[in-house]
């Protein structure tokens, strides 16, 4: 990396810095402050009651459950995809690389609608599923499915970039030294990607918990049953319960702040390792 350019602060620099700070305050800090201001507008007791409300608690639980289900699956998927794409040659590799990015390039609402058209009561596979007593749409499994779809590229993307840069010579040497595929992965590849992996998981998690569009299409909006936190926030807001909505939003915001802190710790860590 290039050495930092040192220069004295001149007029232009100061102007740019001021603009930067003002914009950050206006567009990022202010909304966050508003969230907490509104959440606590009627005092701490009300805030606590809002958070501890049965439906909000259920939404928090469902959000955590979604993360618990989706993260491991998407992590495994990301690892498998990155490993095959970067360590092996096979026909159709480019196609797979493009396919991995599809969820990034499709609007979440569209993703939700296409799931609905596929698995819904009037959809392609839906009627058959319902005949067999498998109701997927407007239920918790639907939330898992679309969230999985929308957030699937995060881990894979993060790993593919790094693993492409690392090349495969280490794995090749390991193979000539007698390492099996699993030993190659566990002893050689994994230690070299663990920070990027964690980083991808954290980003993925943030997106899983915050996902709104796709989930709102397939959840069916059953109070206290199929509402995740973002949906709960919207519902409360439409019920003219602004304080309750902001209280629920503050939980999401706290999760986001924790994510940011973890992310910057990891970034510093990888940056540090790259330099040493």
């Amino acid at each position: 990396m290039a050495a930092p350019i040192r220069s004295s602060l001149n007029g232009t620099a100061i102007t740019l810095i001021v603009i930067g700070v003002v914009l950050t305050l206006l567009f990022i800090a202010a909304p966050v402050i508003v969230i907490f201001d509104q959440a606590f507008a009627k005092g701490f007791a009300i805030y606590r009651d809002n958070i501890l409300h049965k439906e909000t608690l259920h939404a928090i639980w469902l959000t955590l459950l979604t993360a618990l289900v989706v993260l491991p699956i998407n992590t495994l998927f990301g690892l498998a995809a990155a490993w095959t794409i970067t360590k092996f040659e096979f026909p159709g590799k480019r196609l797979l690389l493009t396919a991995i990015d599809i969820p990034f390039s499709i609007s979440p609402i569209v993703a939700g609608v296409s799931y609905l058209l596929l698995y819904g009561a009037l959809g392609l596979v839906g009627p058959w599923l319902i005949e067999h007593d498998l109701r997927i749409m407007f239920s918790v499994p639907a939330i898992f499915l679309v969230t999985m779809f929308v957030t699937s590229p995060f881990v894979a993307r993060e790993l593919i970039t790094l693993m492409q840069a690392q090349g495969r010579e280490r794995e090749e040497v390991a193979a000539t030294l007698g390492a099996s595929g699993w030993q190659m992965f566990y002893r050689v590849t994994l230690p070299n990607i663990k920070w990027a992996l964690l980083y991808g998981v954290i980003l993925c998690n943030a997106r899983v918990m915050g996902e709104f569009g796709a989930v709102s299409v397939v959840s069916g909006n059953l109070r206290g049953q199929t509402l995740t936190l973002p949906l709960q926030v919207q519902l409360l807001y439409h019920d003219y319960n602004a304080t309750g909505a902001f209280a629920a939003a503050s939980v999401l915001t706290l999760l986001a702040i924790v994510t940011m802190v973890l992310k910057s710790i990891l970034e510093r860590r990888t940056e540090h390792r790259r330099r040493s």
Partner: peptide, 20 residues
Amino acid sequence: QPPQTRGVGLVFQHYALFEH
């Protein structure tokens, strides 16, 4: 035979050591 059973020692130009 796969590389695992050939009993060859291999050294690349850029060493490819296990950094960790």
